[in-house]
Simulated scan of single mutants.
Amino acid sequence: MVTPVEFATHTDLAEGLRTLIRELEKRTDLREPINMVIAGGMAIHLYTAARVTTDVDAEFSKRILLPADLIVETKNGELLYLDPNYNSSFALMHDDYLQDAVPVPIGTEFVHVFVLNPLDLIISKIARYSGPDAQDIAEIISRFRISADEIQRRAEEALGGYVGNTDYLRMNLRDVLATADRLTGGSGS
């Protein structure tokens, strides 16, 4: 969707992520490649370098037992860990989010790192839409000039596969679309 992307892979937080993944490779004795798709605050950081987080929301292409005590310290003293409770099933996700994920050149051997593409990252934050989500979404919209129309189209497609009451999601989506119009000079959706 968005190419090319210059990722923030040399920040203290990204270096901590690299260390965390290398430690994961060692501790799980990986012998074959596995894909890791990152969402949440770490994905925002890799795109913008504007966000700080201590947990990594990620899903893997194969089943893997995450060591409960796998925590690394970044150069600035922040602790970084893989969130064992992250589950993409609780977010609003487009059916194609995994195949549309963007590879990140992080330099690890067996764990191939991807992040949600910018549009899917926005969509994934609509269900929760609390705490830093509004600012995260604004950062991605600004950085990639994503229009309200693009967001609405992708969100409507994702809503088609969502089970449950979508009233709250649609209310959050309206806020996100207003943000996109404001930041990109759109005409409204």
Rank of each mutant, 00 (worst) to 15 (best):
T3C: 09
I106Q: 00
Y47W: 05
V104W: 00
P132M: 12
A14L: 06
R18Q: 10
G185D: 01
A101R: 07
G160R: 12
L98Q: 07
V52A: 13
R51Q: 05
D83H: 15
N85A: 14
Y86D: 12
A178K: 12
D167Q: 11
D100L: 14
T184R: 00
F90R: 14
T166F: 13
G131H: 04
V56T: 03
A8L: 09
R27P: 01
N172P: 07
D167C: 09
V37T: 15
T28P: 02
D69K: 04
F110D: 07
N117H: 08
D69T: 02
R128Q: 12
G185S: 06
P84V: 02
Y97L: 08
D69A: 10
D136T: 00
V111N: 01
D12K: 14
S88V: 11
A68Q: 04
T48K: 03
S142N: 06
R27M: 07
L173G: 04
S147F: 10
F110I: 11
N76A: 11
P67W: 09
Y47G: 13
D96F: 05
L66E: 10
A50C: 10
D95C: 07
I38E: 02
R182H: 08
R143D: 01
F60E: 10
S124C: 02
D12T: 10
E73D: 15
A14S: 07
T28G: 05
R31I: 08
I21L: 03
T166S: 13
L173A: 06
E59W: 15
I122M: 11
A134V: 04
A91D: 15
I141V: 14
G131D: 03
E150R: 13
L80W: 06
P67R: 12
A50R: 15
T3F: 09
D57M: 11
E15R: 12
N76W: 10
T108D: 02
T11Y: 13
A180W: 04
Y129F: 15
M171V: 12
I151S: 01
I106G: 00
M36W: 00
G161H: 14
V176H: 01
I106W: 00
G77I: 05
D12S: 13
Y86N: 13
D149P: 07
S61P: 15
G41C: 09
G77R: 06
E150C: 10
R170T: 10
A134H: 02
Y129D: 03
D136N: 08
V52G: 12
A49G: 15
L159M: 14
D181G: 04
D120H: 15
A178E: 12
E6T: 10
F144Y: 11
P33I: 00
A138E: 15
K125E: 06
L66C: 05
K26T: 14
R174L: 11
E156G: 07
F7D: 00
D120K: 14
H94C: 00
H10T: 06
I126P: 05
E59Y: 15
D95S: 13
N117Y: 02
M93H: 06
R31C: 06
G131R: 13
T166N: 12
F7N: 01
